[in-house]
Design a protein around this nucleic acid. Sequence first.
DNA 1: CGATCAATATACGACGTTGCACTCCCTCAT
DNA 2: ATGAGGGAGTGCAACGTCGTATATTGATCG
Lengths: 337, 337
Amino acid sequence: MAATLHDVARLAGVSIKTVSNVINERPNVGSATRARVEAAIAELGYTPNLTARGLRSGRKGAITLAVPDLALSYFAELAAEVIAAAEAAGVVVLIEQTGGDRQRELALLKSPRLNMTDGLVFSPLGMGQEDAGALEVAYPLVILGERIFDGPTDHVTMRNVAAAREATGYLLESGRTRIAVVGAHEGEVVGSAGLRLRGYREALEAAGVAYDQELIAYSGLWHRANGATCMRDLLARGVEFDAVFGLNDTLALGAMRVLQEAGMTVPGDVAVMGFDDLEEAPYSIPSLTTVDPGRGWIARTAVKTLLQRIADGGQDRAPETRLAEFEIRRRESTATA
Amino acid sequence: MAATLHDVARLAGVSIKTVSNVINERPNVGSATRARVEAAIAELGYTPNLTARGLRSGRKGAITLAVPDLALSYFAELAAEVIAAAEAAGVVVLIEQTGGDRQRELALLKSPRLNMTDGLVFSPLGMGQEDAGALEVAYPLVILGERIFDGPTDHVTMRNVAAAREATGYLLESGRTRIAVVGAHEGEVVGSAGLRLRGYREALEAAGVAYDQELIAYSGLWHRANGATCMRDLLARGVEFDAVFGLNDTLALGAMRVLQEAGMTVPGDVAVMGFDDLEEAPYSIPSLTTVDPGRGWIARTAVKTLLQRIADGGQDRAPETRLAEFEIRRRESTATA
DNA sequence: CGATCAATATACGACGTTGCACTCCCTCAT
DNA sequence: ATGAGGGAGTGCAACGTCGTATATTGATCG
């Protein structure tokens, strides 16, 4: 059995409350007493029971991170940074996977499991603007991503429209005019797909290039396989293009593979642009030009914001939206001759 | 404030214990009473306080998974499967990252944070056989990987030697005789690198091909960049080879990129074999032949074994080692003309 | 019709911790 | 000498749940 405060108190010859005070570094403990208590703690190998502490104090020292799926690189890298940021603040992270399924996401928001932690960083994928009401919850919540705006909670996200506009603009400037899009979602307005497509259209418009519906390839989940499928579809339809904008890196890499299979050269025949700046982007062949959306900043800010809310307790400050800065990472896949 | 058993009991006009009995589906609750209690639960939106339950019962319904880094694809995909398996058993997963650092790993094993969960699935990377003693801990522990054998705990792992032998054998059978190895660890005997290299040597021996030290490229962490570096090193040294065995997929992909940069064709000039069967392996160019080491099975088995130990309580059954089956996934990177 | 028994429901305390309110005693200014 | 001030340490209660022991009820049986 693990030692308790009682055991330590008995050994040190003080009250259990004094031991508690030593552990929590409170004032009003004499240095001799403190030393005695610390010796007893060391001797018994005492560690505080975090469950009991959580019950008594209401603080658990843990947060939940909910993402669609850790097998999707973007979310794995995001999770890695969230865990690191939380650890730096002395907090642990519990991870839930929703599969990007709206029902599971809505269920998660009401799950009793959440009361195991002090708050939630939530990256929804299936929910939409119409579900904003479901974010009205009793615990601290920070949402990520671009499925819901102006919700009742803090929101940390990236500048999708501006970044996609700049990415597209970069392709246009380097002389490409027929830019295919891979991974669009039919009819979507908000959501990463919708917003990035909007940035794409804005850039075309600014450059006076006509938007051509033919160039848009639609897909479901942003898996590599779907990027490949989109590209096969474009090729099968015989659409002419000299550049591809993958709405994320995974799609871009899948598409690039098919392009090369089909005998086209990148960037010679076709330039390829991604979005996310995954760890693998510099190592594809050719290396992938992409948008670094500020993932690390997003993770750190989400954690900081959530912990702030938790520390604030019940006070209702107005919800805030925080936007990460982005940057185009120029690599080989868009090089000009 | 969230409702408690007391609130429900008051509303339903029964004792708090009866409510508890309803929630825990115990017998000896009349159906009329049960209905009344359930109505009260619904009306108040009561959910059990898991912290209090954890304190009282000693079961928290959560496990910890400790891995080096979620940004490493192998561990991200492993974590995804561990979480899925745990969820199926109604258990949540808390993730710790150790950075593969021996000190942090040792510290984690003694961390008070672990008492927030019921047990640990631990994938060490920095610890070695000499640290086996540190695995003697008071909580249920299942270890993964190949850093420590015959330790005091359950162990779930893959058949590294056999799989590497078969992978190498496959290259030999398809006519390759000068097989470079990427990602070896100098002097390592256990550990994935050491074991896979041993499998490689065994296959060479079985085929009567001499082991050539020149063909082995060493690296630290199995990042893509290190695969690239190894390959640059091999090319710089002017070593002749007609195949590359990357000790994992990430290394193989990094190496393959450099090969192609250098103007060599895969699999024409050089065949490339990986290990892990990452989600991206089928989508590289060319698609990567690799060893599927049974990651899903490992995740499920680790969770099942841990939950079994937890359910068993203090009984000390002898520790067991469970080995996953592997399979070679034949793809383009090793095709023969 | 009273005794017996199972089914149903309850009361009490404990899990290990921390917040609050308290006592004691020493110091220091008046 | 007196009282204010505050450092040091204590005791009690409570967080919300569940296990154990016990009380109550109604049904069954000889």
